[in-house]
């Protein structure tokens, strides 16, 4: 299954995904990998109803999402994969989701978070997750919308954050 975009975005399914990226990438399916949303029927219904009818949607716990993405039965679909956090994306890749590159699309400010980029705020857990994704050979870049400025997220950038806590 080709994952045409694997995106970290704490707003999950919203306009930048369903209009911005989907208009360009034409995914057949959006896979939202999030344990909390998958366990909550109302949240699942709200997010599923936000997806245009021509795109299928699967809202799954992280482990099931990894299995779904790795299943050869689903090879023909173009998938846009979403997680809310770097930690979840790291877990997905660690347990076998076929993801070679990750788009960091939106990690907003919160308690304990520091600005890495104008739309990316991180804490120590995020930095560790980014580091582990790089260790596994995953490419990381940050870009909110198609055509917007793209930033490389590499060792140097992570070390810069670690050096300035």
């Amino acid at each position: 299954m080709p994952v045409v975009l694997a995106r970290i975005d704490d707003r999950l399914i919203h306009g930048q995904v369903t209009v911005g990226w989907s208009r360009q990438l034409r995914p057949d399916r959006i896979v939202l990998a999030n344990n909390e949303v998958a366990a909550d029927r109302w949240q699942s219904r709200v997010y599923a109803s936000s997806v245009p009818p021509e795109i299928a949607v699967s809202i799954l716990p992280v482990a099931r999402a990894a299995a779904f993405l790795a299943d050869p039965e689903n090879i023909d679909e173009r998938v846009l994969l979403l997680t809310a956090s770097a930690v979840e994306m790291n877990e997905l890749v660690r347990i076998g989701a076929p993801v070679g590159a990750v788009n960091v699309g939106g990690m907003h400010f919160g308690p304990g978070k520091r600005e890495m980029l104008p739309f990316v705020f991180v804490d120590e857990a995020d930095l560790k997750a980014f580091g582990r994704l790089l260790d596994m050979g995953t490419e990381l870049s940050a870009q909110q919308v198609p055509g917007g400025r793209e930033y490389t997220v590499d060792r140097q950038r992570l070390q810069g954050m670690e050096a300035n806590p």
Binding site: R11, H14, G15, W42, Q43, V46, S50
Partner: peptide, 17 residues
């Protein structure tokens, strides 16, 4: 302003059905 965006999801989830 528009259904399908972050405002809509936040409002609906906060109202909890």
């Amino acid at each position: 302003d528009d259904y399908g965006g972050s405002c809509a999801s936040a409002a609906l989830i906060a109202c909890g059905g």
